[in-house]
Nucleic acid binder design. Structure first.
Lengths: 359, 359
DNA sequence: AGCATATCGGAAATCGTTTTCCGCATGAGC
DNA sequence: GCTCATGCGGAAAACGATTTCCGATATGCT
């Protein structure tokens, strides 16, 4: 295999100096058209590609963004990543993906690893809501950063793109209430995890609005782990009057909860109403289909990418620092079950209430 | 924010030359213990981390592996990736992930991008079975490469880790045959896609072994796209005597097929038997649970990582070039349905044939 | 025609590290 | 006590680009 062509080879081929080659290729002013032509021809002929490392060393930039996730083995994250990655790639950036394996204490190490590699920007979606140390680390790195569905640090270089979990969660609760549910349970991820917090707050708020007191015994927070979610769901569902509706805040938790329901012989949509967060294959294909709070994951990824691309361009930071994207409640059969109340004549009234709510 | 410490700062702090610092830190022979101590102390105090780019430029290596996928938004791929990534990371490598968006013509561009970045190794799992151009490109790059569930090129630096799709597929077919099915349909990915080919070959072979002729009308190949899979499944299931059993070779295809079944009002496990490849959440949680061919995705990823780590160590290539990992057939309710046949006396012969086949 | 200015090309410094080469010093052997 | 071998550390080259600085040329104006 032949050795890779360097800028010197191109210079020799085009009969000019190396400096001229660099200027010609990088579109500097004051370069004659003729020279550009010759250099381009030579570069093309030799299949010259500027050495990435030398380039980066000199310019202090790598055209690489670091992407920190808790785990990529989560369809929601991986879908977002795919979209962001495509947008970044067309923007001329490659992306180095690092997983903290859902261990908050690894976040700092991951960030430092990426920083050492001189990434030009960061997208952070580590699962554990980063403790102070990680956020501080982020700030002192001085790298443009987009937080993905996380709280932004106050930092100048820190942007965020988030989903509006709250409004759809309120509608979900209202929907359940309108169907007569009063014992509405909630299982979320870690309590300090941004999406969980948003969802829980909205849940509590909506219950309150409906005149129902959120009951501590009906809300549980678990880790991102199907086993743990399964255990929590079992506990919750085995209460003496079991809850008549369940909201699960996340797709891993959904899997755990479905296992628990299955093991207890409870039929979704008949014995219990179920609402999931994030509309994945499973929610659509499950029998019965599961009501879910959907968000456009592609849009989330692309928006994060664009925000970062803009943030990485020196100066010109006109953009909003925090972008909030909408969510949407998709009603399916899993919440068609009406809570059978002693009183009757509920159907008509409830259908009306829903129609009202949905508009 | 203070400027990052360079090797010169460390040298000055420790009152030695830069060369000595480099040697001390990199554990060269002929370095006195005293010197090492002093240098280490200085490095620690200044929080010195060798600049990645300069290091790479000089050594011609980046401690980075490139990972090429068709899409990461596929739970099977992302699970494999997560495992591989962890293993590589503990081996001291970071990983740059590039997606070809399931477009075969982008493969070469992606590979060249990674090569330009001087990746030390490659793991390739691009969805489209790379046409000759990509494979040739791979060969001329001269980078140690592990193919993930793909055919290895003959190249010296090319390794592969594959799943033994065939044996479980044969068992699956035998299982269906033993329950009286004769019209066993198959929907796979692109026909030139390695796993699809392996699965289809085994399917045809097993049918043949059972005395059933694989019928062209019952086998379809589609792209990695739920819509396309849905369309193919519809066509297949609307045949006049519809197939009594369906094997879907991949999780995207499974989703499409389930949609089609749902739309046609066919109940899995009652109206039709269903076998899926790859045991994902959906197969376990679907009602009824779906019989699936399982493989250890973590193991696949870790094995690929280890193979590559070893391949990247110069020399010492004792390892097998191709590793084949087992798969396993998980029987669930989706194949409990027995095909009621008009004729009898078939059972005995087939059961015998199956017992033979499985061993 | 001569001078000043604008523009372009070439040589060399720079980025931060590794690595080679060489000289010095210390130790041992005769 | 002198020499030789060996181990250790310092100076400088190399990696491959960018970029600054400076000299040279061409052009335009008076």
């Amino acid at each position: 295999m032949t050795q890779k062509a360097t800028i010197h080879d191109v210079a020799q081929q085009a009969q000019v100096s190396v400096g001229s080659v660099s200027r010609a290729l990088n579109n500097y002013p004051h370069v004659s058209e003729d020279l550009k032509q010759r250099v381009r021809a030579a570069a093309l002929e030799l299949d010259y590609q500027p050495a990435f490392l030398a380039n980066g060393l000199r310019r202090g930039e790598t055209n690489t963004v670091g992407f920190l996730v808790g785990t990529i083995a989560n369809p929601v994250i991986s879908t977002i990543f795919e979209a962001a990655s495509e947008a970044l790639s067309t923007g001329g950036y490659a992306v180095t993906l690092v997983s903290s394996r859902n261990q908050a204490e690894l976040d700092v190490a991951c960030l430092r690893l990426l920083a050492r590699r001189q990434v030009s920007g960061l997208i952070v979606s580590s699962a554990a809501e980063s403790p102070q140390r990680a956020r501080a680390c982020l700030a002192e790195l001085g790298i443009p950063t987009v937080m993905l569905d996380r709280e932004a640090t106050g930092d100048d270089l820190c942007y965020a793109v988030q989903s509006d979990h709250a409004s759809s969660m309120r509608r979900a609760v209202a929907h359940l209430v309108s169907r007569g549910h009063e014992e509405i349970a909630f299982i979320g991820g870690p309590a300090d995890f941004y999406p969980t917090r948003q969802r829980f707050l909205a849940y509590a708020e909506a219950l309150d609005f409906a005149g129902l007191r959120p009951r501590r015994a009906l809300t549980r927070f678990t880790s991102f782990n199907e086993r743990a979610a399964y255990a929590e769901a079992l506990l919750l569902l085995q209460r003496d009057p079991p809850p008549s509706a369940l909201i699960v805040a996340g797709n891993i938790i959904l899997a755990g909860a479905l296992m628990a329901l299955q093991d207890l012989g409870l039929l979704v949509g008949r014995d219990i109403a179920l609402v999931a967060c994030d509309d994945i294959h499973l929610t659509r294909l499950y029998r019965p289909p599961i009501t879910a709070i959907r968000r456009d994951l592609q849009l989330l990824g692309v928006t994060a990418a664009h925000l970062l691309l803009q943030g990485m361009q020196a100066g010109a930071d006109q953009a909003e620092r925090v972008i909030k994207l909408p969510t949407e409640l998709i009603l399916r059969e899993s919440t068609q079950v009406a809570r059978i109340k002693p009183a009757s004549a509920h159907r008509g009234r409830k259908a009306g209430a829903i129609a009202e709510l949905v508009n």
